[in-house]
Design a protein around this nucleic acid. Sequence first.
DNA 1: ATATTACCAACCTATTTGGTAGGTAATTAT
DNA 2: ATAATTACCTACCAAATAGGTTGGTAATAT
Lengths: 134, 134
Amino acid sequence: MIISTRGRYALRVMLDLAEHMGEGFVPMKTVAERQGISLKYVERIVPVLTKNGLIEGVQGKNGGYRLVRAPSEYRVGEILRLTEGDLAPVACLEAGAGECPRAGKCPTLPMWKELYGLINGFFDGKTLEDLRGK
Amino acid sequence: MIISTRGRYALRVMLDLAEHMGEGFVPMKTVAERQGISLKYVERIVPVLTKNGLIEGVQGKNGGYRLVRAPSEYRVGEILRLTEGDLAPVACLEAGAGECPRAGKCPTLPMWKELYGLINGFFDGKTLEDLRGK
DNA sequence: ATATTACCAACCTATTTGGTAGGTAATTAT
DNA sequence: ATAATTACCTACCAAATAGGTTGGTAATAT
């Protein structure tokens, strides 16, 4: 499995916010209830989205979160990369990984790179708007 | 990350056997040394390949393993599915997983299924022979 | 003042990953 | 026969990851 609950829940939270745009700031309590996810767990996932400017949150009564762009302007890829860290199919392609000593003559490396490109392209080719219509 | 060392090592072992076809039975000790992988770990990975008839092993002196088909007749997908168990990108698509209660109205499920098909197709479209020439 | 809400850090349990250790059974060379 | 080699098998183990929970603090509207 490549996509954990972090990325999947983040996507569902974003979709929920998209579905309820124009209702002002939506509290995560509401989103969590609608989505059937623990509020506390959602609270641990969401900060990376605000820190990277994907959504906007305000504290206090009547506070909550809202999208800062139109749903069609969010690529699924950027949401998943932020929450999952990396979509690399193998460890040797991950951001932090040093160059494998066998890289030069590794017969499988080109295949992993090709798949990596395929996966990133797949997710970058879809937006929140695309998912909304199921 | 989706493909662990199990699948990657299995692939390298198969490629090594392909590279040394016609040399009779090749002991895993030799393969492990050539590939720079612990023999003991390889010994734990390889049985699934013999049990499913992908390779043939004989015990005793001058024993070892050999491919039973031409390299072009091995799909990368079958090797990875045997060693990794499943190439599903999300838990809800895994073989053992029961149907998700949200499946009917889940806006992201079609995307996961599409990617699952893409991944399986990608790996089934490549054979050991394709990888040999780098 | 109070309720609400985002925001933050520490902790926890179960599973997976990536192995190692220590053998037994079969077969061949000597 | 015996010794060496090799597949094959089981149990164990440490570190990392997944998937949370607990218990707060800070900001803001009413």
